[in-house]
């Protein structure tokens, strides 16, 4: 259970990114945090992961504790990457096994194999391959809380679908997951709930079942709330061709 009440966050340059954010997430729920670029999605994820600290005395509570107190139970899978450039995937796995008590080396190796990753230092890999190392490492931590910041970056459609299938097949239903992505289509039938950030605040917080009962898709909701259309850059490309 994650509880957030009246959370504010301001960066040291006085740029306020989040204001009055309140919501709670029961154990096992899969939540998409969406919004335009700069809406504060990544900041919110970093706060939940304990990588940033909220303004004032407000604290995020995860099972009654602060994120920092249970950091070993949170996996943060990020576009930026948390791996070490000089290590090979397997050496990185050995490092993680020492650090995370529940690290599942067999599962990690299985995922590396599944993604077709070779043993060479991460710095020699493509962007897509690096993202796969990041995902395999994050999932193999087998933590009850998983935070995914743009996990699909650098992956083609088939890899995205393979990944969704691997993810669906390996979750137990006990994991609480927060995910941000621009690949809305991949998560339409996967997430339980959508929270859209706009102008530093929550614009809407709705379960997928409620959304469907209103006859809307996540894409339509995004368009309605923030005028966002997935892959709208294609029309831009068409015009500049």
């Amino acid at each position: 259970m994650v509880e957030i009440e009246k959370l504010y966050f301001t960066y040291p340059n006085y740029d306020t990114v989040l204001e009055n954010i309140t919501f709670s997430v029961p154990t096992g729920q899969i939540v998409a945090i969406l919004g335009a670029n700069g809406a504060g999605k990544t900041t919110l994820l970093k706060l939940i992961a304990g990588l940033l600290v909220p303004d004032g005395n407000v604290q995020i509570r995860i099972d009654g504790k602060t994120p920092q107190q249970i950091s070993g139970q949170i996996a943060f899978i990020s576009e930026a990457g948390t791996y070490f450039n000089d290590l090979t995937p397997k050496a990185y796995g050995d490092f993680l096994r020492d650090f995370f008590p529940a690290f599942d080396k067999a599962y990690f190796d299985m995922l590396l194999d599944f993604f077709g990753l070779q043993e060479r230092s991460v710095k020699k890999m493509s962007k897509g391959q690096k993202a796969k190392v990041e995902i395999a490492a994050g999932m193999a931590k087998r933590t009850p809380y998983i935070i995914m910041d743009e996990p699909f970056v650098g992956k083609d459609m088939f890899t995205r679908q393979d990944f969704m299938q691997a993810l669906s097949g390996t979750l137990t239903g006990e994991e609480t997951i927060f995910i941000t992505t621009h690949e809305i289509r991949e998560i339409e039938n996967f997430v339980d709930r959508v929270i859209i950030l706009k102008g530093n605040q929550i614009a809407i917080d709705i379960t997928l079942d409620e959304l469907r009962q209103e006859g809307k898709t996540i894409q339509e909701l995004m368009k309605e709330m923030i005028g966002y259309e997935e892959n709208s850059f294609y029309s831009f490309l068409d015009k500049t061709d």
Binding site: G28, Q29, I30, Q161, M164, Q165, S168, G169, L171, T172, G173, N189, F190, V191, D192
Partner: peptide, 16 residues
Amino acid sequence: RRELATLLKINPNTAQ
């Protein structure tokens, strides 16, 4: 439930 979740790429709670 797990086989259904994997096949349809849905989350295990939805399968449940």
